[in-house]
């Protein structure tokens, strides 16, 4: 039996008296899969993702990356947050370069080359010298994605990264992110409570119950919609059917208390 790429093995989490993940949580994630954690707000899905990043520690069980239990954070597992995702005192290009600040294995020349490559990849090259407050919210999220990729992250951990964007920018970034993930072959763990976003982006959608988080469903989206996700896919009947199915699951998971 081969070791899975990323594995949650009997993970539980308590914050004081609060059970965030009550029952031991098991999940294995294949390399280069796009995984979306979907669940009601405050259900504990973010905590599970943060534990992959080493920003929270499991109370019980462990999380293994290529067989090695994850300890503290490092550059192989990068975070993209919804807000405060880029540093306001650095320009767009400096933000991307900052991603490699603590990489001692790269020369300055290599760092600059990677910076330019990833700025280009997210379409921000011409905004290199702008400060984040001068670009749109969508561009700030692209800065964060480019910075994380430039740092050399193999696993991208994204905490509702498009949550604060308007619908149009959000769609555009979803298409781009899916494209980047396919081309750059990265493993992504993406947290959201938006069903449409989840189905559009994911290879696999993991649906969680309300807190304490429990796995409700594990849906193989790629088996039903394929790996290519053009924008038009959103208008197809298959997409609708799957979206409605997931929405129903989520409603049941959230319960009637809202």
């Amino acid at each position: 039996m081969t070791e899975p790429y990323l594995a949650f093995d009997g993970v539980t989490k308590r914050f004081g008296a609060l059970d965030v993940v009550g029952q031991p949580f098991d999940l294995t994630i294949a390399r280069n899969d796009f995984i979306v954690f979907l669940g009601p707000s405050g259900c504990g899905k973010t905590t599970l993702m943060r534990m992959v990043g080493g920003l929270d520690t499991p109370t019980g069980g462990d999380i293994r990356l290529e067989g090695v239990p994850v300890g503290g954070p490092d550059h192989r597992r990068g975070m993209v947050f919804q807000s405060y995702s880029s540093f306001p005192w650095l320009t767009v290009a400096e933000n991307v370069l900052f991603g490699m600040r603590y990489r001692t294995d790269l020369t300055e020349q290599q760092k600059r080359a990677r910076r330019d490559h990833y700025l280009d990849l997210v379409g921000l090259y011409e905004f290199s010298d702008a400060y984040p407050n001068k670009v749109s919210g969508g561009m700030r999220q692209r800065v964060a994605i480019a910075r994380t990729l430039a740092a050399g992250s193999e696993v991208l951990l994204m905490d509702e990264p498009f949550g604060a964007l308007d619908a149009q920018r959000r769609e555009k970034l979803q298409v781009e992110l899916r494209g980047i993930q396919r081309r750059d072959t990265k493993t992504v763990v993406f947290v959201t409570h938006d069903v449409e976003e989840a189905v559009f982006l994911a290879d696999r959608v993991i649906v969680f119950s309300k807190r304490p988080a429990r796995l409700v469903a594990d849906i193989d989206v790629t088996a039903q919609l394929g790996a290519e996700r053009p924008l038009e896919l959103r208008d197809s009947p298959e997409f609708f059917r799957l979206r409605n199915g997931v929405l129903k699951l989520l409603r049941e998971a959230a319960g009637d208390d809202e």
């Binding site: 990043g53 080493g54 920003l55 503290g72 954070p73 490092d74 550059h75 597992r77 990068g78 975070m79 947050f81 807000s83 405060y84 995702s85 540093f87 306001p88 005192w89 900052f98 991603g99 600040r101 603590y102 990489r103 964060a144 910075r147 994380t148 740092a151 992250s153 951990l157």
Partner: peptide, 24 residues
């Protein structure tokens, strides 16, 4: 978020303090 970004980029605590928290 700033602090956690720095950590996931491989910074150690003194570096987080100097390069990120102090600047912020």
């Amino acid at each position: 978020e700033y602090v956690e970004i720095a950590y996931t980029l491989g910074a150690r605590t003194p570096q987080v303090l100097r390069d990120v928290a102090f600047r912020a």
